[in-house]
């Protein structure tokens, strides 16, 4: 690990003051410490932000405001999250291990980096995320776990978070603070697609800090998360689906759908949502919506299976929610 200085921020303003050039914010450390040990991340300073807001507050109108330092376990366990946003509780519980969820913060989970094996292989592989312009060994390499949507000739990595897929489906917003002031962004606008600069993963400005995540009132009482992976627990998603569905008189009144394991960012399935609104809540319509979303999916040589797997998982999850709603 490259030497660095460590300090603890007492509040958001203090964190911003401490975040000088070359510094990084430190949450639970479950990803950043690992990346530092691999010397993929080499911050000059760590600003510990685990002492910042870790509360879950009710908002007027029925939403929740979750402090960025709240641990993943605390969110998944919270009564209001379990009852009103089951998709978020389920997504968090599908991720990592209990030990890691006890450490990981909301902000850190959002900003975790890809588990692409070539990104991690600092000494043996080329990676445009690590060294922009160097090349991508995953495109012609072992790419079973890589992207089928929104990838670029520079990068085919996927975002590893389960929780973020639920946040994308819930129309969450992120509250940000920087020296220039505060702003609120739709969660789906926070992460970038790789294009020519896969090393830039979010639209955060240097030093900008995530202070909270806000959930609007839920669209429907029914929501869920399904994760398909190589083993039943403690594995990253091959494909995952977060969904919430409102059915009225047999028709889709409204729907939110997001996909994990398929793209460089948590993938909100806007095309499938558009295809579904007003349609009968049937298996045929669910399948057609999945086809619409995946119409422009591009497989690599090891991951073509993900296209059909994603379609089937979307249809199965919507079928499950429609069955519950009936």
């Amino acid at each position: 690990m490259t030497p660095f200085s460590y300090s603890r921020a007492s509040d958001a303003a203090d964190a911003l003051r401490r975040a000088t050039a070359g510094a990084k914010y430190l949450g639970g450390g479950t990803n950043l410490v690992d990346l530092m040990r691999e010397t993929i991340e080499r911050p000059a300073a760590l600003v510990d932000v685990t002492g910042l807001s870790a509360t879950i507050e009710e908002r007027q109108g029925g939403g929740l405001l979750i402090g960025a330092a709240t641990r993943n376990t605390a969110v998944a366990e919270h009564r209001a999250v379990r009852e009103r946003y089951p998709v978020l509780a389920r997504a968090i519980l599908a991720g990592a291990s209990a030990q890691i969820r006890n450490m990981a913060t909301m902000g850190g989970n959002i900003l975790q980096r890809t588990r692409c094996t070539y990104f991690y292989d600092d000494e043996g592989s080329q990676c445009n995320k690590r060294v922009p312009g160097e090349g991508c060994d995953a495109i012609e390499g072992f790419n079973r776990i890589h992207a089928i949507l929104g990838a670029s000739p520079a990068c085919v990595a996927t975002h590893p978070s389960d929780m973020c897929v639920a946040l994308a489906a819930l129309d969450a917003t992120v509250h940000l603070r920087s020296a220039g002031g505060e702003r609120v962004l739709p969660f789906t606008d926070l992460h970038r697609l790789p294009e020519g600069r896969p090393d830039i993963e979010t639209v955060l400005e240097p030093g900008e800090l995530i202070v909270a995540i806000e959930l609007p009132p839920p669209l429907a009482t029914r929501s869920t998360y399904r994760k398909v992976r190589d083993r039943a627990s403690y594995a990253f998603a091959l494909v995952s689906v977060a969904a919430t569905l409102a059915v009225e008189e047999g028709r889709v009144k409204d729907v939110r759908l997001a996909l994990g394991g398929v793209a460089h960012k948590p993938w909100r399935a806007f095309k499938a949502e558009d295809a579904l609104r007003g349609q009968p809540a049937t298996e045929q319509a669910f399948r057609a919506a999945a086809e619409a979303e995946l119409a422009h999916a591009v497989p690599l040589h090891d991951n073509a299976f993900k296209i059909e797997l994603t379609k089937r998982t979307i249809a199965a999850v919507l079928g499950e929610l429609a069955g519950e709603a009936a």
Binding site: G28, G29, T30, V33, T73, Q99, I100, M103
Partner: peptide, 9 residues
């Protein structure tokens, strides 16, 4: 609370 001490500074 259980944690993994290897990733804890």
């Amino acid at each position: 609370e259980r944690i993994v001490s290897c990733l804890a500074l």
